[in-house]
Nucleic acid binder design. Structure first.
Lengths: 335, 335
DNA sequence: CTGTTAGCGCCTTCAG
DNA sequence: CTGAAGGCGCTAACAG
């Protein structure tokens, strides 16, 4: 491996001079700068960033933790975060928790031992608190994304879960639906709670009562166990519409319904939170509350960088990004 | 920051003993091992992986370079690679070139300076050769994914581009289509060349001639410029079907056609390479050659780890993963 | 403008 | 079974 000492020797200067050329610090005569640069190229020198980080105590690496890399919402968000990170001179290390606390913890340990400069953190749920505290204890700045956690202060970028859910459900109500099921994520996740509360509010505002037997809970990542869906279908007074709390749940529900010979929207209307990224264009069929995923990443990254570089005010900032109701054809008027 | 020296002091041993406890090397009495471990927990010690890597000359970090993080083929592949990496005790650093050579080069520089132990590399195209040679020069093992590059030897995991393309186009021919357009990626990419050659072969085997005015080239990432599509539509003898060389091109084409008032499949049949990951289930509409994306990642990672850990034979291995023709409803019989 | 010294946190080697 | 010395590649702080 080529080191600055190899360069120094061949260029007839000290290692320190080479270091200065590399970092553009101090004053160096144009002549030696050129000479050193030439030798660096000849020897194909690549700085060792670990040695560098070890002494500087910073890595210029940030980490983005998302809960599902196969979910287009998060990949689009990742693009936003990546672009913003590169622009600010940082590299981005992606991590994928799969909505799994243990996997999340593993990645947090890794961030700690890699000494990343900061983390953009979409938690798996409230129990992620432990992992966040771990970061806090080791003075690693972080910004939280998409989901809020009681008991910890941090900069936040959230969607308008309650509002978005209310709009979706009111849309169904306007179409004449009165019995609306909800397929929600785990109640351990703030967005699940808020989307439920928007669902509830839409009912109350319209003089409808909420029936808890129509609300089922699943992992946000996938639908899996379909038994609860059967309970809905065979309900003594079955729903005519479904509100899925995110895109993956909607996919799972549609698939499960299809297996049972039921079509959306002819047999059952369906709306959901989140779009499907680029594949949305393929089939603009689902009525959704679309979130500005790219902005989540870009804005979150901006907050993070500001915090790291000390440009942020001490108090925590909370950004709420609006979602947009896109009315398409997966929900029909009743009858 | 807590170091092994802090632990050593508090436990009344030398730093070396602490290091041995951490790494389970050498022989240590059960008593001191316990004492040291206790102190480590009390102080919330986290090993500094950079200091460690600096002396060991290995990082236990691998990198996965893909060309489009918003493409479900690559995110599914990423999941496969991640799972396999974690299983083998490595961490994975994701990088996203966006089909952009300069961005790819930036990431390669970063891999070099981070001294990753190995790279799973999906190149942007033939000109990526430069970047691969760079890795080779610095003795960083790599495995190539999805695309082959003339002029460099490496382990390879590829799809059966030619075969898959042939099957798709023959399917169209069986449906009665005779004038089949192709929307291809850049000819700088091996999969684009092979898919074209499968397209060509399907024609020749069926006694049809290939008309180059029906073949257009685009970036695999997105459709953008739609003028070439207009040329197809207003062709004096227009195509009745389109073969898109990948999923993103299919999305772009469908969108552009729709804008022009043309529907698939009623006005034009369309088939493409690659599925759409989880969102495929949403709308099993497109007839595709589906590739085992997860396997690409998992198998590639396995080859990479074997190569790094010296368990691989010196000669390069080339794995070809079959694609599966999924006949759905986006291609109809002519007339 | 350039060099010397010291040390970031850890592990290898060689002594006890 | 345990410790002391030295060095991985780099840069901050201080000299000149």
């Amino acid at each position: 491996m080529i080191t600055i000492y190899d360069i120094a020797e061949k260029a007839g200067v000290s290692a320190m001079t080479v270091s200065r050329v590399i970092n553009n610090t101090g004053r160096i005569s144009e002549a030696t700068r050129k000479r050193v640069k030439k030798v660096m190229e000849e020897l194909h020198y690549i700085p060792n960033s670990m040695a560098r980080s070890l002494v500087l105590q910073k890595t210029k690496i940030l980490s983005l933790l998302i809960t599902d890399i196969t979910n287009p919402f998060y990949t689009t968000l990742a693009r936003g975060a990546e672009d913003a990170a590169l622009r600010a001179g940082y590299r981005l290390l992606f991590a994928n928790s799969d909505e799994d606390y243990a996997k999340e913890k593993g990645y947090v340990d890794m961030m700690l031992s890699t000494r990343v400069d900061g983390v953009l953190f979409a938690p798996t749920g409230d129990h992620s608190l432990e992992n966040l505290l771990q970061l806090q204890k080791h003075n690693i700045p972080f910004v939280m994304l998409d989901r809020e956690i009681p008991g910890i202060g941090a900069d936040l970028v959230l969607g308008d879960s309650k509002e978005g859910a209310r709009k979706l459900v009111e849309h169904l109500i306007e179409l004449g639906h009165r019995r609306i099921a909800m397929i929600n994520g785990s109640p351990d996740v703030s967005t699940a709670r808020l989307r439920y509360s928007g669902y509830r509010e839409a009912h109350l505002l319209n003089g409808l009562s909420v029936e808890d037997s129509l609300v089922i809970h699943r992992n946000f990542r996938d639908f899996q166990d379909e038994s609860a869906l059967d309970a809905l279908i065979h309900h003594e007074n079955p729903p005519t519409a479904i509100f899925a709390a995110n895109n993956m749940l909607a996919i799972g529900a549609i698939q499960a319904l299809r297996k049972r010979g039921l079509q959306v929207p002819s047999d059952l209307s369906l709306v959901c939170f989140d779009g499907f990224g680029p594949t949305d264009a393929l089939n603009p069929f689902l009525t959704v509350a679309s979130q500005p995923a790219y902005q989540f990443g870009a804005l979150g990254m901006q907050l993070l960088v500001e915090r790291i570089e000390g440009e942020a005010t001490p108090e925590h900032r909370k950004m709420i990004l609006p979602s947009e109701l896109l009315i398409r054809s997966s929900a029909q008027a009743l009858r």
